[in-house]
Simulated scan of single mutants.
Amino acid sequence: MPTVLVADDDANIRELVCLFLRGEGYATVEAADGREALKAYAASPIDLAVLDIMMPAMDGWALCRELRRLNPDLPLLMLTARGETWEKVKGFELGADDYLTKPFDPLELTVRVRALLKRYRIGAARAVRLGEVELDRSTYKVTTRTETLTLPLKEFELLYTLAETPGQVYTREQLIERIWGLDYAGDNRTVDVHIKRLRERFAEVPDFRIETVRGLGYRLEAAE
């Protein structure tokens, strides 16, 4: 049974969220602020965290940063009362996987939780090999013929997504939705920036290349 940490200073929201999550078969752990959430995380195994931004003692930004430092693989869903673009961008930059704006439909929250857990489990279940290159999702490391690199989270997720299905074309919109989340409101050209960085990192690696499909998006081609 997956365990979800729900951190929100509003007791009514915590109760509502936990009620629906338990109805879907999840165990829940509650915290009224970021410090309580860190204690709860240290005390028991947590599979996913739902974090409110505006909390006393330690807010959602600081909590997100600390949880991501402690566990790069932990799925993080952030809640915000305003839903402003800058908040979403900041959350994603700190490592959030998805966003939900208050007031929200509890059923939508449970769907997003289920989707995040599924995405995480599929990714965490295996490594991907491209010739002599291995992508290890448990450590976010890429091992090539000559070195081992630890990539920033979004760069790794982007490369891993392309590498899972070599030859498949992904549009920018599909990559944004899968890696930055459904509520990402920034410029989808951020995908181009991350692709450029990946190409620069692996320019001397012959095992694969990332190709631009004009008018569509990107695909990864493995060397034969």
Rank of each mutant, 00 (worst) to 15 (best):
A42E: 14
D98F: 01
R65Q: 14
D8M: 05
A81T: 08
M78K: 04
K88L: 15
D52Q: 05
P75K: 07
I53Q: 02
V6K: 04
K118L: 13
L76Y: 07
P72F: 05
F92T: 13
K118E: 15
M55S: 08
A49K: 02
L107N: 09
D9L: 02
D10K: 04
V111K: 11
L67R: 08
P75E: 06
R114F: 00
A7F: 07
G25H: 12
L48R: 01
D47W: 06
L48K: 02
E66G: 09
L77H: 07
C64K: 03
L79N: 01
D33W: 03
L79G: 01
N71A: 11
Y99W: 15
V111Q: 12
N12S: 15
D47M: 06
D98G: 05
M54S: 14
M55D: 07
R22M: 13
G23M: 08
A49W: 03
Y99D: 00
L67C: 11
F92N: 09
A115K: 11
Y26V: 05
F104Y: 12
P106T: 08
E15W: 09
L77N: 04
Y99A: 04
A27Y: 05
V50I: 15
L116M: 14
Y99L: 09
R65F: 10
R114M: 07
D47V: 03
V89Q: 12
E87L: 07
L67P: 05
G60R: 06
T110W: 02
T110F: 05
A62H: 14
V111I: 13
G25A: 12
F104G: 04
V113Q: 01
A40Q: 09
L77C: 09
E87G: 08
D73P: 00
D10Q: 13
W61F: 15
I13E: 05
V29P: 02
K39V: 08
C64P: 00
R22Y: 07
L38H: 01
L48Q: 00
P45D: 05
V111E: 12
F20P: 00
P72V: 10
R112S: 03
M54D: 12
D97M: 03
V6I: 13
C18Q: 09
A11G: 04
V113P: 00
A27K: 13
Y26S: 06
L38N: 03
W61M: 08
L48P: 02
L117H: 08
L16C: 06
L107Q: 11
L100I: 13
D10W: 00
I46R: 01
R82Q: 15
E15L: 13
A7H: 04
D105W: 08
A7K: 04
